[in-house]
Design a protein around this nucleic acid. Sequence first.
DNA 1: TTCCGACAGTGGGGTCGCAAT
DNA 2: ATTGCGACCCCACTATCGGAA
Length: 568
Amino acid sequence: MAARACGGYGPDPAAGPARTRRPEDDGPGPGSGAPWRPAYDPPGPLHRAGARGRVHHGVMLLAPLARVSGEVAETSARSRKIALIAEVFRDAEPEDVPVVIAYLSGRLPQGRIGVGWSALKDPPPPAAEASLTVREVDAAFTALAAVSGPGAQAQRRRLVGELLGRATEREQRFLTGVVAGEVRQGALDAVAVEALAIAAGAQPAAVRRAVMLAGSVSRVAERLLAEGPGALAAFRLTVGSPVLPMLAQSAPSVADAAQRLGGCAVEEKLDGIRVQVHRDGEAVRVFTRTLDEITDRLPEVAAAARALAGDRFVLDGEVIALGADGRPRPFQEVAGRVGSRTDVATAAAAVPLSAVFFDVLAEDGAGLLDLPYTRRHAALARLVPEELRVRRVVVDDGEAGRAAGEAFLRETLGRGHEGVVAKGLDTVYGAGRRGAGWLKVKPVHTLDLVVLAAEWGHGRRTGTLSNLHLGALRPDGTFAMLGKTFKGLTDAMLAWQTERLRELAVDDDGFTVRVRPELVVEIAYDGLQRSTRYPAGVALRFARVLRHRPDKRPQDADTVETVLAGRD
DNA sequence: TTCCGACAGTGGGGTCGCAAT
DNA sequence: ATTGCGACCCCACTATCGGAA
């Protein structure tokens, strides 16, 4: 195996750095001793805008938003965060509302604009006085989003530099957080929705529902603040407009899931890309989990939707790729295919996709979200032939039912699929929710691996060694890195491992601490994926720490051979 | 009073497309 | 041609707040 020849324990240097750089890296970073804290940004000029957040002639400044974001980050009480943000919403000019809502829920109205940490990491010296208006900033981002073609990167950096140069230190921090999608103020969409409800005098539940149906807070906010609570009724499920998909929680076993749900349906869980398919007459649109439209990339899905008997419907399902043997292809192949947009015909010929459906959100143009699972499934069965639906069994609330569910999981795994999802028979479609009415069950693998290095954490993990580099034993006693993980650690485990790894440290570049390979950790993971980054040619999927094993010696860790033998 | 649902945060690997080198 | 970066796909898990029980 060629990748083996690179010899080192870690990522193949030729494959590029596995780390992500952040602005903090260049400051007095977490590795340099004292925990990193934002510099104090005094009030003063900010208050030119007044406590109500705007100057007399209705031009809203950015400064009060940045200040409120800071205050929101400072308080831990959710109710206080909501009150702070509601006040800004209430006082915003109607034209500014969509922008203000987006900024205070940590996003840009333009979405992603091609600017990441790399372009933000060396900001110019901040301005002394706050002068930027919300409208100017929004115009600047609109201009940034439009930049493309040769020279785009330099042009973007120049524009970002110009904008940040006019911002105070606090405003710079706020803007970079919004652009990078990491405001870290402990308030995103859910808090914005509550605040919006207060600002508009509407019921939070009604606002939340409208947001799920509209797919965005801003679209609801605009109309709600302009027209009042009556505007909420206009947000209904519409064929052609995507709604946020319902998500599942995890359960350790089918028996556990069945216990919690009572009688339930157990459906196979396919390892592909979630799709929401809308058909209105001949018009078909396909959306991803985050509501991006990918219709043009999935011609076979659109064709399948047109071939169905119904005329106006919305289906929820998964696209997967099946091999000649009928078994599912690895997720990576499906993701590559769905991600291909330049030459769809060639990509489709190489990896044909199949859509498999498990829910229906609208039938004959009428929304079904509030119907219980059983009735939605009946509608699904009317609309979609069995071979285009996920396999399932319905089990009752008892010993025999649980056994039947477990047997169905084993059979599903035997066919090469990822696991199952147990669904309560009375569960309504909770758009945008990770409801307890859907419980996914997947097999978990475990390994004892050795910590080779650890990275300093960010945010609430600042000052702790958080992200672990994991190695499996080679026959010659060295280690092959299989991936990293920061998951599964309690605060106590984090503190303990930071102390222990400091004792084992041999090198610290301010970002990564390399250690003597002596600490064994028990790792859970979902499976292996092909990797060009790591020397064994595979990486762990969804690795997380179960526990530290200081009782185990590194030479007792699992070997590369063991890991590869467990491969499907 | 205790329990539990919903959120936010902290990042993981892979793949594609585009611009820079 | 190769590399770097950003956008999106998939995602697990813990801490916390505040309402439900």
